[in-house]
């Protein structure tokens, strides 16, 4: 515990000085592989939470269980990264938060995703209502084949907002937030498809930000981009910290370490360790986490 409190000094942008409460948990359902490593570690953050995931389970339409008894807090206005080997369920988990899975037949959830401070369970809400509040940015930039301006305010149009002043103001504000304003302010009415890949992805971020989402989900947002465009997105995410609650899937551990305040390591549909990012990467609490981040894994 003492070594743990020391690490707080290393953490960036985390103002709290109180010692976080660490809880050690054992899963009720034993993990299918790696016997003897069933230890999990779940940090209880001192900061204000935006959401809490409790005992979340998820099944696809064909009956395969993709998420098992997942517990995790989501800290308000901080960046949380989800890491883990491919196929571990991190994208599946992300898509539970805006009920994207409900597009397909036969999916099933159990448990709770409680949105704070209202204390509503996202699993019980109409998926359409959930998506009005939880935004998402996808792996590949997917702007609509419309103008840059229309893309930025697409979410507002969907919400029936028609006042030109509000639309214009929100367009500029979110394009500035997404660090795109200076590049596109003179060509707002040109096609979004004329932008470069990196610009398109920032446009998608602006589009998601324009509706003031409670939570913004990012599903490997830089995996389709070149290193320079990736760096710009990372800078942007660093700036968004303190403004928006972000949950991001990344398969790049360095990226998680660079951007996020908190990191969750998932393996085979389960959460192995949730901790402050620096702590997770420097002093992992679980053997499985250590194996993964030190590259001994796979």
């Amino acid at each position: 515990m003492t070594s743990f409190s020391k690490s707080i000094g290393m953490m960036k942008n985390v103002s709290t000085t109180a010692e976080p409460v660490a809880t050690k948990r054992t899963h009720s359902a034993p993990p299918p592989a790696s016997a003897g490593q069933e230890d999990t570690w779940l940090l209880e953050p001192e900061e204000e939470l935006r959401a809490r995931v409790s005992d979340l389970e998820f099944w696809y339409g064909d009956g395969t269980q993709a998420i098992q008894k997942l517990n995790m807090p989501l800290v308000d206005k901080r960046v949380t990264a989800l890491i883990g080997p491919s196929g571990c369920g991190k994208s599946t988990f992300l898509r539970c938060l805006n009920r994207m899975h409900d597009l397909y037949k036969g999916v099933k959830y159990s448990g709770e995703i409680t949105l704070m401070p209202e204390n509503v369970n996202l699993i019980e809400l109409d998926p359409m209502v959930v998506r009005l509040r939880v935004g998402m940015v996808f792996q590949k930039p997917n702007p609509f084949p419309k103008t840059i301006y229309e893309n930025t305010i697409a979410g507002l149009r969907i919400r029936g907002i028609k006042k030109r002043a509000v639309l214009d103001e929100m367009a500029e504000k979110s394009l500035r937030q997404a660090a795109l304003w200076d590049e596109v302010k003179d060509r707002l009415h040109q096609s979004a498809l004329s932008l470069s890949g990196g610009q398109q992805q920032r446009l998608c971020i602006a589009r998601a930000l324009a509706v003031q989402p409670d939570i913004l989900l990012l599903d490997e947002p830089t995996s389709a981009l070149d290193p320079i465009a990736t760096a710009r997105i990372e800078d942007l995410l660093n700036e968004l910290e303190g403004q928006v609650t972000i949950l991001m899937v990344t398969h790049n551990m360095q990226q998680a370490a660079r951007i996020s305040n908190y990191t969750a390591y998932m393996y085979m549909g389960q959460l192995v360790e949730f901790n402050e990012t620096d702590a997770l990467f420097t002093r992992p609490k679980c053997q499985r986490t250590e194996d993964y981040i030190s590259g001994r894994f796979g």
Partner: peptide, 23 residues
């Protein structure tokens, strides 16, 4: 039409008719 357009619209909170009609 790429599935991505549909996902983008749904992800923004559009319902099925909005997605169909507008996108």
């Amino acid at each position: 039409i790429p599935e991505a357009y549909k996902e983008a619209a749904i992800g923004l909170g559009a319902d099925q008719w909005q997605t169909t009609y507008a996108y």
